[in-house]
């Protein structure tokens, strides 16, 4: 279980996050929603360890983790933008992420990818879906996904959702995206970041109450 508590983040004099709390469990997908600039990505980066915060408490299975989480080797993070270097081939990326070529081939049945192809030669959408696939299939315990549904086609979004459901069995998955319908569909637990604090959503109608979505749009 991943537990994040008391996260406070300032940008200069402006406070972005006010003691955010979040709990994500194995076998569940935890979705985070919030308007633009509310601090969703910043929150994931703080959990991952690449962004500093004034205060934070991160616990994995009840043990406080003092180090940056990514140095412990139990977490993988999918950033918003392409992150695998252009020069790298699909085969090398699979090796580094410890994902088998067989798994890759069986997921991308329709696309006949040449494994020696470099990421720099792939289209934006192809690149993105491979990065999402690698992030989900890699044998890390905690997976943090920042906008995994962006820049990919609807049919691929469906395939990714299915993959998330399979992978969540042995992983802790935390996901943020602007497509709230996709998030609500795929998540078992939902948090809303509003005014710098996290609110656990038990009924989807609460999203209307908190004015994250307009009345009647559910």
């Amino acid at each position: 279980m991943l537990e994040v508590d008391n996260i406070e983040k300032y940008f200069g004099d402006i406070q972005l996050l006010y003691g955010v709390y979040l709990k994500a469990e194995e076998g569940q997908v935890t979705g985070i929603l919030g308007s633009n600039g509310c601090g969703k990505s910043t929150l994931l980066k703080i959990v991952f360890g690449s962004e500093k915060s004034k205060y934070k408490l991160i616990k994995v299975d009840g043990n406080v983790i003092q180090k940056k989480l990514y140095t412990v080797g139990i977490v993988k993070y999918l950033p918003q933008h392409n992150f695998i270097p252009d020069f790298m081939s699909i085969r090398k990326a699979l090796q580094l992420y410890q994902v088998s070529e067989q798994d890759f081939r069986s997921f991308f049945v329709e696309d006949d990818f040449d494994l020696l192809q470099k990421f720099g030669h792939l289209s934006g959408g192809q690149r993105r879906i491979i990065e999402v696939f690698l992030s989900l299939k890699t044998p890390a315990r905690i997976i943090l996904l920042d906008e995994p549904f962006s820049h990919i086609s609807p049919i691929q979004i469906e395939a990714i959702k299915k993959l998330i459901q399979t992978e969540k069995r042995q992983k802790i998955i935390v996901i943020i995206d602007h497509y709230y319908r996709d998030i609500t569909e795929v998540s078992d637990e939902i948090y809303l970041i509003k005014n710098g604090s996290s609110k656990r959503i038990q009924q989807l109608t609460e999203l209307e109450d908190y004015k994250y979505i307009s009345q009647g749009s559910l």
Binding site: F48, G49, K68, Y70, K76, Y77, P79, H81, F83
Partner: peptide, 13 residues
């Protein structure tokens, strides 16, 4: 830079 996350994901501090 996003590629920095590639190195972080490999556990490099």
């Amino acid at each position: 830079q996003s590629t920095l996350y590639f190195l972080y994901n490999l556990g490099m501090s």
